[in-house]
């Protein structure tokens, strides 16, 4: 894992789109109190922000915490300091991915990966491919528990098994390839 960083962690976070508000936090705990998934976070939302501010890079980026964010934005509307915690947690997720961290206690990143893979293949999401990819890379047997839900969707014409590619797939590929060239250090 990349450890030699010239920049402090908190500065790095503040430079990712969405992470700009990290220094505004006053640790009131409103985000944690408002979070519908706080009970499954390894560190609560406000703790995560405190850890970032304390420059505890490894602890934060290897944690499963931010991956539990449901993007409900309750913290964001209630935060009295306009930290925009929802965006901040997504910024932390993308930093963890960029630096190769793989959290142990949640399969959310695997699900996200499978989602994005399906987009890169077709230019759009195929929920079926996404689910298949997810179960194959986690526990294929847990897919058994999903059969009733998948059947509900399938039998109502809501789960196309083959994915239609978008018309502009070639253009999208060119754009993403070019992005890799110009990306720099973001």
């Amino acid at each position: 894992m990349e450890k030699t960083q010239s920049m402090s962690f908190v500065k790095e976070v503040s430079q990712v789109p969405g992470g700009e508000g990290v220094n505004l936090c006053m640790q009131c705990g409103t985000c944690t109190a408002s979070c519908p998934s706080a009970k499954i976070w390894e560190y609560t939302p406000s703790e995560v922000i405190a850890l970032v501010r304390a420059d505890m890079r490894d602890v934060v980026l290897s944690s499963s915490s931010m991956w539990c964010c449901l993007s409900c934005y309750s913290c964001t509307v209630r935060c009295p300091r306009d930290v925009q915690p929802t965006s901040l947690f997504h910024a932390l997720e993308s930093l963890a991915v960029k630096h190769g961290y793989k959290p142990q206690n949640t399969s959310m990143p695997v699900m996200y990966n499978s989602f994005v893979k399906s987009i890169k293949k077709n230019g759009r999401v195929s929920e079926f491919q996404m689910m298949m990819g997810y179960y194959l890379s986690t526990n294929p047997f847990s897919a058994l528990g999903m059969i009733s839900v998948a059947w509900n969707l399938l039998s109502h014409g809501r789960l196309p098994l083959s994915a239609r590619k978008i018309k502009g797939k070639k253009d999208l590929d060119l754009i993403l390839k070019k992005l890799d060239d110009v990306r720099g250090d973001q």
């Binding site: 910024a91 993308s94 994005v116 502009g168």
Partner: peptide, 25 residues
């Protein structure tokens, strides 16, 4: 004509910049 995925939340969580590019198209 020719729209692609919006760049959805999971995309932004893995790669914020790329998700913005996907949306920007």
């Amino acid at each position: 004509e020719g729209w692609n995925c919006c760049g959805s939340t999971p995309y932004g969580s893995l790669d914020e910049l790329e998700a913005i590019v996907v949306a920007a198209r």
